[in-house]
Design a protein around this nucleic acid. Structure first.
Lengths: 228, 228, 228, 228
DNA sequence: GATGAATGAGTCTTCATTCAT
DNA sequence: TATGAATGAAGACTCATTCAT
């Protein structure tokens, strides 16, 4: 961490070296998790897959648990970034567009690395996963909350923090459930549409009702009338 | 307890007896799951906790997996009943009331045996839990769908089956997430209210917007005006 | 075994009954041994196959070992009888014919119930099998010895008892080995012929040499000359 | 023994080391087999006896079966060598001498490690032992056959391959049987003599009859006359 | 630092045997 | 006597972790 500096100009200064090692260990962990599930995850296997010795693994991770924790951290950081990108584009769009983007972002984040996602959210003893997931959701909620602030006037909810949490949990919950039990839905346009309406109908039911009204008009006038 | 007494004419010579045994094994499984998590679940421990020998356990369950499966089955059956009760009352109520009841039912089912619920839905290798959970959700969806049929005219969604699935997954996802990450919410009235609005805003945004309009009126007239 | 006598004239007086039970237990044992090998033999399985309860099994056999011992006894008695029959016919035949009969008898006894034979002679922990097998071979030797006595004058061995033992062990050993490693041989006429020559060449080489001489003559005169 | 010394330039860092380990595991297996039989053979016991942990055992042998298989292989290789030595000396001897040597070799190979020999040939579930034993006997037969070729002109059998197999099986069967049921015989000179006559009488009855004739002459003239 | 052989507690599972009914 | 549920010791095998090199 602080040893020889310019004298021994190896390609990989210790710090860099160990970072790579840690990385390949985490990737190996992810691969094995995907291929053989949590029950099939053994430290020896991870070391093997990463091309290092078990000993080295234990140099960087005090135990198996911490290995998984680190992977979860890395993974949720990845998710954050993916989602952050989506959110940046959205700041100035209409609520409808923004909600649509959020929904798509949630589903996308699930789809990418779907199997790993699923294992990490469902199969890992929660003791490990919880803190990281909590952090992830807290950050997401904050982000959504601050976005909601920008549109406060257009929204029909008051407790924006609670609303943000609910939106985040709704989207996370739904994409997880869909991933597990109805993966086809993840790619269905009407699923996306429904989720958008779900969120919009929560945040701004009036706008949502207009939306469905006009949608209905296009298709079934009688229905619209009945509702008016 | 076992010596003959004419009052209790040897009712449980075999069938009843083994049912009790199975029951105590499943309860032991649940207890251990709650106390030590899935990783801490061993067949010997279960037998011990149930006060029987491992051998007896294996007389009734061919392996550890089947033990967990049976527990999941028992648990999801319990849930079904709990929820079924709620739903029966609701058939003829207004949508608003019905949605409210559904929300409360979802949260209730999570709260009862909360820790077990959490472990069963999150921590068990999905291979075991999935079929049972899928069945459970399918049944729930059907039930909700048939309820939606009754109110078709008042709803602003068309694909009632998809809508039912979304409602079920939303409520399940949200209560699970809340249970894990924000258990306080489960007992918060405003959480219940928000969830009701979420669902109502999805199924019938027009009604939801009236609801929030009047709710808003009571509290902040300015807001209502801004929205009109 | 001694209870109620004439009063209760059941079809199967206790003695007969238990004999049948013992019999079906032994047959079950044999079946299982054949189907699943010694490692697959469990007392519960035997009881099941015999259509009785384990408890009953233990009424008649103090433990698993004794069950197998009894089967071995029954089986070797069967062998004895089979072979005895063959021997009776032979008393007054020529040595050549008698030897031939003995050889065929040995091979036959192996072929009948071959799989059981093999398991009983090879796979059973010898502690069990040995005494019975010893007894069997001792009896066989005696029988052969007494037959040899009848032909003492024609034989070129002196220690008839040793010779009898050697003949018995040779035939037993050869048929067992053939059964295990070259079962095709058991049905090959030339194998029978060779074994006959083996035994005859031992007991009466002069007669054997005449036999092979004439056999050779028929086929390759040159050979015979070369040897003369 | 393990600290560096220039004299023994770290010869056994891995390969040699593991070879030793494998060796001590096999020896432990043999010991236990001899002391407690196949039923008493447990992997934990083997590891214990070998002075290593079970874990180490499983580093070298994937399961109990393979351990036994390896032992059988090692043992049959040993036998092969022992016997090979005997055979080399014999190539140019007379048939009588050669047969005598073969007989002694067979008995010797049984005597050495007699108890292990017996367990390995009789008590091990054949699934394990068979392939190795078959290989062993096939090799033996080939060796004997090629020896028979050299003496083809003096022999009175034609199918040398069958003859070789029969000789091998006879000797193996007889020494095994003798070992089990009459171990005293293994050390009796007359047993050796009888076996030699058995084999010689099979391969070359004419020579055998001369042998017994002259042997008889020395002892009992009357007998010889009776036979002429 | 890196290595990977060695460790051994702990898992699931079987099965001979008992004994209350 | 018969039954068969219950027992629990014992066995094969795994894997997180350590430590001598």
């Amino acid at each position: 961490m602080k040893k020889k500096a310019r004298i021994n100009p190896r390609k990989l200064p210790t710090q860099e070296r160990s970072k790579q090692l840690v990385d390949s260990l985490l990737s190996a962990t992810a691969n094995i998790l995907v291929r053989r599930g949590y029950e099939g995850l053994t430290t020896n296997r991870v070391a093997d897959e990463a091309g290092v010795s078990v000993g080295s693994l234990y140099q960087y991770f005090p135990n198996k648990e911490s290995l998984v924790e680190a992977l979860i951290r890395r993974w949720s950081d990845g998710l954050m970034e993916t989602i952050a990108d989506h959110y940046l584009e959205v700041r100035n769009e209409s609520i409808e567009t923004a909600v649509d983007t959020m929904v798509r972002a949630a589903l996308d984040s699930t789809r990418v690395d779907a199997k790993l996602h699923r294992i990490l959210t469902q199969q890992i003893p929660n003791v490990n996963a919880l803190p990281a997931l909590e952090l992830f959701n807290r950050r997401m909620s904050e982000r959504v909350a601050s976005w909601l602030e920008l549109h406060r006037e257009e929204l029909e909810v008051e407790d924006l923090h609670l609303a943000a949490e609910i939106v985040v949990m709704t989207l996370a919950g739904l994409s997880d459930y869909a991933l597990i039990q109805r993966p086809e839905l993840l790619d269905s346009p009407s699923f996306v549409q429904h989720l958008s309406r779900l969120v919009l109908g929560y945040l701004a039911p009036t706008r949502a009702s207009q939306l469905s009204a006009s949608a209905g008009k296009r298709r079934r006038t009688s229905k619209r009338l009945a509702q008016s």
